[in-house]
Write a protein that binds this DNA or RNA. Structure first.
Lengths: 341, 341
DNA sequence: CTGAAAGCGCTTACAG
DNA sequence: CTGAAAGCGCTTACAG
C-alpha cells in the first residue's frame, strides 16, 4: 500500500491560505482583511471576503488563540446555577457575547472563595479574552491573579468606587434599606429579617435593614434570623414558622430572597396566619411566581438580565481596548409593592 | 533603545519544553508522560510529573487543540436556560466534565431547529471533543453535520432504538401515560391535558395521555388545551381558568409541566375551586416548590441531574474511544403522588 | 521505550 | 498598503 507522500496531517479544512490563494493575496493580507484591520485596500477586502464566503471559511479558534495569545473565551464565575438570578445573568451575557464571536464559559464557585481561586487558575491558563466575576469578596491571590493576567474583568451585582475596577450592579445595601423603609411606612414596628445562605450580598442587604431600623430606633437583634443553609422555598416555610414561634409579636418579615418569602407565604396559608393582616411579608429579586402567590408578594425587582447585558457590553469595549466613560454602572432596583405588605 | 535580539513573542509561560528540560527528557516524552500515554518508562513519568508540578506547568489548550485537531470543549445544546430542567442538566454535565479537563459550553436553541443548525455549524468549527444535544428533532443538515464531523454525540432526554445513536433519558410517552393512568385510578373520567410550548417532548407526553384514555374509551379531544406560548406559572393560571370555563365538567387536569400546574393550583385557590375535590391537578418534572404548594402537587419526578451525569459519563467514554455496553440508557421516572390528586 | 523533524493554522514583528 | 519569515506550544508520524 502506497504511503502518503508527505507527513501532512491536513484536516481537510478550508484554511486562510486557501482563501488567500482564491483572492490572489498573501495569507497575511487575507488575515488582516478578515479581521477588519484597517490599512488594507478596499478592493482587496472585498475580494478576500467574497472568497471566504464562497469557500465557507471558518477561522480556527485554536490557531488564532495560539498565535495571538488570546482566545475568544469569557469565563463567567457565579456562585450557583440553582439560583435563577445567576442563570438570568449568564443567559444575558451569552446572548450578547455569542454574536460577537465570544464564548461564555460556565464557572460555578458554590460560594467558596477557594473554589473560585482554583477555577480562576484553570481558566486563566486558557488565556481568556475577558472575565466576569460575581462581587468583590475573593481571596487575595485570586485578586492578584486577575490583576497580573491583564485580562479585562468586570464585576457583577455589587457597586464599588475603587479606582480602576469595573462593575455593573446596584447597591444591595440601599435595596435592603428601601424595602425595610417600605415596611415602616406600612406602620410596622416589629420588622424581622430572615435570611439564608448568608453570602456577601445577603449580608449587605442585612446592613441596609439594620441601618434603616436604627435610624428610627426600632432595631432589635432578636428579630434577625440567619441560616447558613441554601435558600429554598421549603426553608422559607420553616424559618417563617420559627420566627413566629420565637417572636410572636413580629408584624413584618423581610426575606432576603423571594424563594424564602414564597415559602413563608405558603406556611402562613397552611397555619392560617393572615398576610398582611397579622404579619406583612416582603421578598427580594422578584422571581418567577411571586406575582402569582396568594397574596401576591411585595418584593424588590433586581435588574439581573440588564446586569448581564451591560456587563457583557462593557467587557466587549474593554476587550477592544476602547476607553470607557464610566468604570461602574449602577442599574438600580425597583420596589414592587403588591398585596403581601 | 536596544531592540530585542530575537523575534520571539514568548508569553513568559511555562511550556512543555521547560518541563522536559527540567526532567532531562525530550518534549515528546514529556508530552507522553503527562498525558498518561503508555509506553513511557515509569521512572521518566515520575520525573516529568514532578518537574511539571514544581514548575506549575499548565498545558496550553489552544496549542493542544491545534496540534491534535481536537479541543476540550463540549457544547451542550439545550432549548432554554429559563427552564430549570435544562439548567439542572447543564449543571450536572459541567460537574462531571470539568474535573476531567473538559469544558461544557452553553448552546441555547430557543426550540428553533434553524438556530440549532447555525449553532452546530459554529461549534463544530471549534473542533469540539464531544457534543450533547437535546432530543432527536433537528434539521436534516444538522443531523448530517454531526455525523460527518465524527464528533462523539449523546442525545439527551428522549429514548430511541435507532442503531449507532447514543442517548440518555426516559420515555416521555410512558411518563404521560403513567400519570394519566393514576388520574383514572383516582376515579376521574373527564381528564384534561393542558400544555404550553408544545415542544417534541411535550407532544410525546400528550401522546401517552391520549393512548391511556383511548385504552379505556375516555379520550375526548375537547379536553386538550394546547398553547404554543412559553410555559410559566402565570400562563398555567390562565389556562386553568380557561379549561374550567369551557369544560365545566372536567374532573382532572394533567399539566405538561409543573410551572403550569403550580399556576393552576394558585388559580384554583383564588377562584375557590376545591383541589382535588372538584378537580384533581397533576404536573410534570417535580420542580422547586411543588412539594410546598397548597395542596402539594402530584407530579412525575424526572431524573434530570442523573441524565446530565450519565450522559457526561457516556461521552467521556466515547471521547476516550472506549466501547460501550449500551448505546441507550433509560433512567426512568417516578410517579410522585401528593395531595392534589 | 525514546527522540528529531515537521506540522497544526493562524498572527506578530519587521521590512519595504 | 503588502508580504516573506518566524513563531505561538503543542502532537503526529516516522525512525530507530
Amino acid at each position: 500500500m502506497p504511503r502518503p507522500e508527505t507527513r501532512r496531517r491536513s484536516s481537510g479544512r478550508v484554511t486562510l491560505s486557501h482563501v488567500a490563494e482564491a483572492a490572489g493575496v498573501s495569507p497575511i493580507t487575507a488575515s488582516r482583511a478578515l479581521r477588519g484591520e484597517r490599512g488594507v485596500a478596499d478592493e482587496l477586502v472585498q475580494r478576500v471576503k467574497a472568497a471566504a464566503t464562497q469557500l465557507g471559511y471558518v477561522p480556527d479558534p485554536a490557531a488564532r488563540a495560539l498565535a495571538s495569545q488570546r482566545s475568544v473565551q469569557v469565563p463567567v464565575l457565579v456562585p450557583l446555577l440553582s439560583n435563577a438570578l445567576f442563570v438570568d445573568v449568564l443567559d444575558a451575557v451569552h446572548r450578547i457575547l455569542f454574536p460577537h464571536g465570544y464564548q461564555a464559559l460556565i464557572g460555578v464557585t458554590h460560594y467558596d472563595p477557594d473554589e473560585e481561586e482554583q477555577l480562576l487558575r484553570t481558566y486563566l491558563a486558557h488565556r481568556p479574552a475577558g472575565l466576569l466575576v460575581t462581587g468583590f469578596d475573593r481571596t487575595e491571590s485570586a485578586r492578584q491573579m486577575i490583576a497580573a493576567s491583564g485580562v479585562p474583568c468586570v464585576h457583577l451585582m455589587e457597586m464599588t468606587s475603587a479606582p480602576g475596577v469595573y462593575c455593573v450592579g446596584f447597591s444591595q445595601q440601599d435595596a435592603g434599606h428601601r424595602i425595610t423603609a417600605h415596611l415602616l411606612e406600612r406602620s410596622r414596628r416589629r420588622v424581622a429579617f430572615v435570611a439564608a445562605q448568608l453570602d456577601p450580598r445577603t449580608m449587605q442587604r442585612a446592613e441596609g435593614y439594620r441601618r434603616c431600623l436604627k435610624e428610627v430606633g426600632l432595631y432589635d437583634p432578636q428579630l434577625e434570623l440567619l441560616s447558613p443553609q441554601p435558600s429554598s422555598i421549603r426553608l422559607g416555610a420553616e424559618l417563617f414558622e420559627q420566627m413566629l414561634r420565637t417572636q410572636p409579636d413580629v408584624d413584618a418579615i423581610f426575606f432576603c430572597n423571594d424563594d424564602l418569602a414564597q415559602g413563608g407565604l405558603l406556611a402562613a396559608q397552611r397555619l392560617g396566619i393572615a398576610v398582611p393582616g397579622r404579619v406583612a411579608v416582603a421578598g427580594f429579586n422578584d422571581l418567577a411566581g411571586s406575582d402569582q402567590m396568594l397574596p401576591t408578594l411585595t418584593t424588590v425587582r433586581t435588574p439581573r438580565s440588564s446586569i448581564g447585558e451591560a456587563s457583557a457590553r462593557m467587557l466587549l469595549a474593554l476587550m477592544r481596548g476602547e476607553a470607557l466613560e464610566h468604570n461602574s454602572v449602577n442599574l438600580g432596583f425597583e420596589l414592587t409593592v403588591r398585596e403581601s405588605t
